[in-house]
């Protein structure tokens, strides 16, 4: 770092120049998440909004409380805790006991972010770690999927008309049952984690973020392309694999986190491909039906190495070009 240009501010990623910039970026992310929340509310009812509200309030509270206890500057104005709250809520089943969701918020905000010094200093995405810890720690409630009458007939039939808990398309696929049509998968009239169901709504949000230059398309495109190609190679339906589970939510909103993904475009492409490969490996072979969050966490951990390799080739160029 000794050869850094003097006119560049040396700081931890994401090289935010002023809090206002972070806030405007984060606001855009929240706007981009609204279509998905709308579809979720249609599919799951108002429970979706309630869960999102609980997570947002909990995250903002923990952010405020942690900074207060540590006697540090209040950072809830940068909207990052709100984004974490919404994304974490999107990763949970809609009927999860709310205190468990709050535990997840605590892990995301306090353990993953503030213990490491706050936004920009965490090495793993807070919402991802929150989701994984809940998923492993509270295995049963985290895989308790409700069925509503707005959902695809295939989902309702699979579990029987009177069932309160159903199976996600990925689980039905693993069991060899009748799957929802690809159109239903794309629109999102299926069950699963609250915010991950609607591919079309998440795509709209992603396109908005790309147009607003909030995210670079490198990670989502390479992530999704890898999933599609591997599906073809392994003999699965690529459309189904792309629409099912958390791939869209992960690729657009979680893998693109500035702090925990590589700085250069080649690095981002490696990151995206890695996410896709590990997602498909876990989906196809591991005990868990879904591998998106594990894949992204693993790539988060590999990010310093990816940066080390890709940055040496593009020394100086990438550093200043990082998102501000």
């Amino acid at each position: 770092m000794a050869d850094m240009h003097k006119d560049l501010i040396v700081s931890a990623a994401p090289h935010v120049v002023s809090p206002a910039d972070t806030a405007s970026i984060m606001r855009d992310v929240v706007i981009a998440l609204i279509p998905a929340l709308a579809v979720s509310t249609y599919v799951f009812g108002f429970g979706a909004i309630f869960l999102t509200a609980v997570c947002v309030i909990a995250c903002v509270f923990f952010e405020w409380a942690a900074r207060k206890i540590l006697k540090r500057e209040n950072t809830i104005g940068d909207w990052s805790a709100i984004v974490t709250g919404v994304i974490l809520a999107f990763n949970l089943p809609v009927n999860i006991p709310k205190w468990m969701a709050v535990v997840g918020c605590f892990i995301a905000i306090v353990v993953v972010k503030q213990l490491f010094g706050g936004l920009g200093q965490n090495f793993a995405n807070p919402a991802i770690v929150g989701r994984i810890t809940l998923f492993i720690g509270f295995a049963t409630p985290m895989t308790n999927w409700v069925i509503t009458d707005r959902m695809s007939q295939a989902i309702i039939n699979y579990s029987g008309p009177d069932a309160v808990a159903g199976a996600t398309p990925l689980a039905i696929n693993a069991a060899g049952g009748q799957l929802p049509s690809n159109l239903e998968m794309f629109l999102g009239t299926i069950n699963g984690s609250m915010g991950e169901v609607s591919t079309v709504a998440l795509l709209i949000g992603g396109i908005y973020l790309v147009i607003r230059k909030v995210i670079s398309p490198a990670i989502p495109v390479s992530f999704l392309a890898t999933v599609a190609v591997l599906s073809l190679v392994m003999g699965f339906d690529p459309i189904f694999q792309l629409c099912a589970g958390g791939v869209m939510l992960g690729a657009i909103f979680m893998a693109t986190d500035y702090v925990t993904s590589p700085i250069t475009t080649p690095g981002r492409i490696i990151f995206g491909i890695g996410c896709g490969v590990f997602t498909m490996l876990i989906r196809s072979y591991a005990s868990y039906p879904e591998g998106v969050s594990f894949a992204i966490l693993l790539m988060n951990i590999l990010t310093p190495h990816i940066d080390r390799i890709t940055r040496s080739k593009l020394n100086g160029v990438a550093k200043g070009g990082a998102k501000a």
């Binding site: 994984i132 810890t133 492993i136 876990i282 072979y285 591991a286 868990y288 693993l298």
Partner: peptide, 8 residues
Amino acid sequence: LCFLGFSG
């Protein structure tokens, strides 16, 4: 945490 994802 991430190693747990590969179980099985």
